[in-house]
């Protein structure tokens, strides 16, 4: 195998690779740069930031901001747990429904697929707006101060359903046909044959749902009031970044006088704490992309 493929490499392939490594490498650097700024300033002393702004390397090294964040880890850990729970449950349930709907909608022999597709797509164009949505959630569904208020609206998105529909289209229709011949029902075909075959698609869609939940703060802001002890991580972060009072409040257990709390560096430290661990999560998803390739190869 190795030898045959090596012989096949021509100049054009080499060129594409050179361009690829160069371009991707450069772009990745650009993406890394602001993140380095965040990390560097989170480890900087407040005084250095106030006097000379951000830098790629802390001018005066200090872990004060982290000390305050972790002195009272209860709130941060609680937020983490809430976000994690919502993300896991939401992604699992949402992914299943999306995959199921996507599969049904791409079936050429399903009479209502166009109508239902439009019914779903139409919601991306028109929405009731803030007030009616708020009324629905609070007055009719009574989801105020309920984690479901964040979980439910994030379950499905028209975009992901249509994406799923497109992905499953690449699975040959004959597979469904032959399974039908064997007497399998539509749902069984989906569950036993289609689902295991579409890991790359599921990984992608699942990743998107999970990201949506992880980055969600707006619904949390609207529906989860400060009366709830633990609120999603991004709302916590949003409050830290936009409100100095909030930082002073949340740092209350750290025994640091209110006026000495390092506002700027705490924003950055909280951002690192809220984002950092997710980076570890991504390679885990990547695995499924690769396993998807092997399934494709077997199929071919």
């Amino acid at each position: 195998m190795e030898q045959t493929s090596r012989r096949n490499i021509d100049t054009s392939t080499i060129m594409v690779r050179i361009i690829g490594y160069g371009f991707i490498g450069l772009f990745a650097l650009c993406c890394l740069f602001p993140f380095i700024l965040i990390v560097s300033s989170s480890f900087s002393s407040e005084k250095a930031i106030m006097e000379s702004g951000f830098a790629l390397w802390p001018k005066e090294f200090s872990t004060f901001a982290y000390e305050i964040v972790f002195k009272n880890p209860r709130l941060v850990i609680g937020s983490y747990f809430v976000t994690l729970a919502i993300t896991i449950v939401g992604t699992a349930v949402g992914l299943f429904i999306i995959a199921m709907t996507g599969y049904a909608l791409q079936r050429q022999d399903f009479l209502y697929r166009n109508k239902i597709s439009f019914y779903i797509y139409f919601t991306t164009l028109f929405s009731g707006g803030l007030v009616p949505f708020y009324l629905l959630m609070t007055k009719y569904l009574h989801l105020q101060d309920n984690y479901l208020a964040v979980l439910l609206p994030g379950l499905l998105s028209p975009f992901l359903i249509i994406m799923m529909k497109a992905f499953t289209k690449s699975i040959p229709h004959e597979i469904t046909e032959s399974a039908k011949m064997d007497g399998a029902g539509d749902f069984t075909i989906f569950l036993k044959i289609i689902l295991p075959m579409s890991t790359p698609a599921l990984a992608t869609i699942g990743l998107f749902i999970a990201l949506g939940y992880w980055n969600e703060w707006y619904n949390s802001m609207l529906f989860l009031s400060p009366n709830m002890e633990y609120r999603p991580l991004q709302l916590f972060l949003y409050n830290v970044v936009t409100s100095a009072d909030f930082i002073r409040n949340s740092a209350a257990a750290s025994n640091v006088p209110a006026q000495d709390i390092p506002l700027e560096t705490m924003k950055m430290a909280t951002a690192v704490v809220a984002t950092g661990p997710v980076i570890l999560f991504y390679p885990f998803v990547q695995k499924y992309f690769i396993s998807g390739i092997t399934i494709g190869a077997v199929k071919g």
């Binding site: 709907t101 049904a104 909608l105 019914y119 009731g128 629905l136």
Partner: peptide, 26 residues
């Protein structure tokens, strides 16, 4: 088409509640 329809039902209900129900609010 009952099975395929049923498979779409969760999504149909979801959008009816979270997207179409507030729409008259326009």
């Amino acid at each position: 088409h009952r099975t395929l329809l049923l498979m779409c039902m969760p999504a149909i209900i979801f959008f009816a509640i979270f997207a179409y129900l507030p729409m008259p609010g326009l």
